[in-house]
Deep mutational scan, measured.
Amino acid sequence: NQASVVANQLIPINTALTLAMMRSEVVTPVGIPAEDIPRLVSMQVNRAVPLGTTLMPDMVKGYA
């Protein structure tokens, strides 16, 4: 099963992502692949992401 990127904390809108904000977890539906975590660092979210939410490509500016 593919691990996805999950929010490790509440991430406010327009926040630049850091490693501490993300974790890898096997979830359904599948979100951004966990191997993309290094690429996500310093990218901004375009909405508030609650703790435990799977990051989807449309939630991260410049990812999709």
Results as ranks from 00 to 15, higher is better:
Asn1Ile: 15
Asn1Val: 15
Asn1Ser: 15
Gln2Asp: 15
Gln2Pro: 15
Gln2Ala: 11
Gln2Phe: 09
Ala3Ile: 11
Ala3Met: 10
Ala3Val: 09
Ser4Glu: 01
Ser4Thr: 14
Ser4Leu: 01
Ser4Pro: 01
Ser4Gln: 02
Ser4Asn: 01
Val5Lys: 00
Val5Cys: 04
Val5Tyr: 00
Val5Glu: 00
Val5Ile: 07
Val6Ala: 05
Val6Phe: 02
Val6Glu: 02
Val6Met: 08
Ala7Asn: 02
Ala7Met: 04
Ala7His: 01
Ala7Glu: 00
Ala7Gly: 03
Ala7Leu: 03
Gln9Phe: 10
Gln9Val: 09
Gln9Ser: 13
Leu10Tyr: 07
Leu10Lys: 05
Leu10Ala: 09
Leu10Asn: 14
Ile11Ala: 01
Ile11Gly: 01
Ile11Val: 14
Pro12Thr: 10
Pro12Phe: 05
Pro12Lys: 14
Ile13Leu: 15
Ile13Met: 09
Ile13Thr: 14
Ile13Tyr: 13
Ile13Arg: 06
Ile13Pro: 07
Asn14Trp: 08
Asn14Pro: 00
Asn14Tyr: 10
Asn14Lys: 04
Asn14Arg: 07
Asn14Thr: 06
Thr15Asp: 12
Thr15Gln: 15
Thr15Val: 10
Ala16Leu: 13
Ala16Trp: 10
Ala16His: 09
Ala16Asp: 15
Ala16Arg: 06
Ala16Gly: 14
Leu17Cys: 02
Thr18Lys: 06
Thr18Arg: 08
Thr18Tyr: 06
Thr18Met: 11
Leu19Gly: 12
Leu19His: 14
Ala20Thr: 10
Ala20Asn: 12
Ala20His: 13
Ala20Arg: 10
Met21Val: 08
Met21Cys: 03
Met21Glu: 02
Met21Leu: 08
Met22Glu: 02
Met22Asn: 00
Met22His: 00
Arg23His: 07
Arg23Ile: 07
Arg23Ala: 09
Arg23Gln: 09
Arg23Met: 13
Ser24Cys: 03
Ser24Tyr: 07
Ser24His: 15
Ser24Trp: 06
Ser24Val: 09
Glu25Thr: 06
Glu25Ala: 05
Glu25Asn: 13
Glu25Ser: 06
Val26Trp: 04
Val26Gln: 08
Val26Ile: 12
Val27Thr: 12
Val27Ile: 10
Val27His: 03
Val27Trp: 02
Thr28Lys: 03
Thr28Met: 06
Thr28Val: 09
Thr28Glu: 15
Thr28His: 05
Pro29Ser: 08
Pro29Glu: 14
Pro29Ile: 10
Pro29Gly: 04
Val30Pro: 06
Val30Ser: 09
Val30His: 12
Gly31Glu: 01
Gly31Gln: 03
Gly31Asn: 01
Gly31Phe: 01
Gly31Thr: 01
Ile32Cys: 03
Ile32Ala: 03
Ile32Arg: 00
Ile32Tyr: 02
Ile32Met: 04
Ile32Gly: 01
Pro33Lys: 07
Ala34Tyr: 12
Ala34Gly: 07
Ala34Cys: 05
Ala34Met: 09
Ala34Asn: 05
Glu35Ser: 11
Glu35Pro: 07
Glu35Leu: 08
Asp36Ser: 07
Asp36Pro: 00
Asp36Thr: 13
Ile37Val: 14
Ile37Tyr: 02
Ile37Met: 14
Ile37Cys: 03
Ile37Lys: 04
Ile37Asp: 00
Pro38Ser: 11
Pro38Glu: 07
Pro38Asp: 15
Arg39Gly: 14
Arg39Thr: 05
Arg39Cys: 06
Leu40Pro: 00
Leu40Ala: 01
Val41Met: 11
Val41Thr: 11
Val41Asp: 04
Val41Ser: 07
Val41Arg: 06
Ser42Tyr: 11
Ser42Glu: 07
Met43His: 11
Met43Asp: 04
Met43Glu: 07
Met43Ala: 06
Gln44Arg: 08
Gln44Lys: 08
Gln44Pro: 09
Gln44Val: 06
Gln44Met: 11
Val45Asn: 03
Val45Ile: 08
Val45Met: 06
Val45Arg: 00
Val45Thr: 13
Val45Ala: 04
Val45Tyr: 00
Asn46Lys: 13
Arg47Asn: 13
Arg47Pro: 02
Ala48Asn: 12
Ala48Val: 09
Ala48Phe: 05
Ala48Thr: 14
Ala48Pro: 07
Ala48Cys: 05
Ala48Tyr: 12
Ala48Gln: 14
Ala48Ser: 15
Ala48His: 12
Val49Met: 04
Val49His: 02
Val49Leu: 09
Val49Tyr: 02
Pro50Phe: 13
Pro50Met: 11
Leu51His: 13
Gly52Val: 01
Gly52Ala: 11
Thr53Phe: 09
Thr53His: 13
Thr53Arg: 06
Thr53Trp: 13
Thr53Tyr: 08
Thr53Asn: 13
Thr53Glu: 08
Thr54Lys: 05
Thr54Trp: 02
Thr54Leu: 07
Thr54Gly: 03
Thr54Pro: 05
Leu55His: 00
Leu55Trp: 00
Pro57Tyr: 10
Pro57Cys: 15
Asp58Ala: 05
Asp58Pro: 07
Asp58Glu: 12
Asp58Phe: 07
Met59Tyr: 14
Val60Phe: 07
Val60Ile: 11
Val60Ala: 02
Val60Gln: 00
Lys61Arg: 14
Lys61Gly: 08
Lys61Glu: 11
Lys61His: 12
Lys61Thr: 07
Gly62Glu: 14
Gly62Arg: 09
Gly62Thr: 04
Gly62Tyr: 12
Tyr63Asp: 04
Tyr63Asn: 08
Tyr63Leu: 10
Tyr63Lys: 03
Ala64Glu: 10
Ala64Pro: 12
Ala64Trp: 02
